[in-house]
Simulated assay, not measured.
Amino acid sequence: MMEKDMYVKVGKRAIDFIIGLIALPFILLVTVVIAPLIYFNDKGPIFYNAERLGKNGIPFKMYKFRSMMVNAPDIRNEDGSTYNGDADPRVTKIGRFMRKTSIDELPQFLNVLLGNMSLIGPRPDPLDDMDIYTEHQKRKLEVKPGITGYNQAYFRNSVEQNEKFENDVYYAEHVSFILDAKIFFKTIVMVLSHNSVYNDASNLSESEKKKIEHMRIDNE
């Protein structure tokens, strides 16, 4: 237990800060290239800044490259998770590429440097997810959220929300340098293989399916 506490409080933060500094020049280079493509696609903002649940449930602003159209409606699967389909009409052309390659997540290295995220940890949830956690699932908030995590490395978008929450708790209870290293390298394999990038539209309610269909018609 003492080794775990030392790693979480000292070692993990040191690794995060060093990797964040190393990644910063690369992120700036990607931003110079990708920012005009995002802007000229629909003349909208470059970044999407979302309020998310941080460690101990404290809200923070998470940074991403914007991959959806401005003012896109919120569409949820029946289990309450965010819909992320291959034919999602809310996603821009450049956004589709960024999602497949996970480039849209790169600005979160700024969150890592600021200390409200870690390289490895549970993906940060929307603020209203606090209302649907069980008491057991709230244990996921005992660690900082991450750019990637146990779910993203081994399942990505192939499991339902409740299972994701339970996997996050498993990580929070077993966090270690070895587990983080396994997740890091497994994430690289998952991203390069493009497996489980999208979830299934069959998990949508009829009303949410109609939202998507109306957007497709409007975009034609």
Rank of each mutant, 00 (worst) to 15 (best):
L119F: 13
L179D: 04
P126F: 12
Y170K: 12
V169K: 05
Y133V: 13
I120N: 02
M69F: 12
G20W: 12
K12R: 05
L29W: 11
F17E: 10
N84R: 15
S196L: 08
V197G: 03
R156V: 00
F40M: 11
S207T: 14
R139K: 15
Y150Q: 05
G95L: 01
E105A: 03
F47D: 09
S193P: 03
R76G: 06
V159Y: 04
L21E: 13
V30A: 12
N77R: 15
S81N: 04
N56C: 14
F165V: 13
G121Q: 01
P126R: 14
I27V: 14
G149Q: 00
I212W: 06
L106T: 14
P126W: 11
S205I: 14
Q137H: 09
V91R: 01
K211F: 07
E105N: 07
A153C: 01
F60H: 14
S196D: 04
Q108W: 13
R52E: 07
K210N: 08
T187K: 10
N157E: 00
I75P: 09
I217C: 00
I178S: 09
P89M: 03
K140A: 11
R76W: 10
K211C: 09
Y171L: 03
V112L: 06
K43Y: 14
F47C: 13
R99E: 04
L127D: 14
T187E: 06
D5G: 05
M130K: 12
V33Q: 08
V175C: 04
M117A: 03
N199S: 15
G149P: 07
M1L: 08
T101K: 10
I120F: 05
N151E: 03
F60D: 08
K140L: 15
G85W: 05
D5R: 12
S193F: 10
K100S: 05
F47P: 15
K144Q: 10
T148V: 01
I94L: 01
N157M: 02
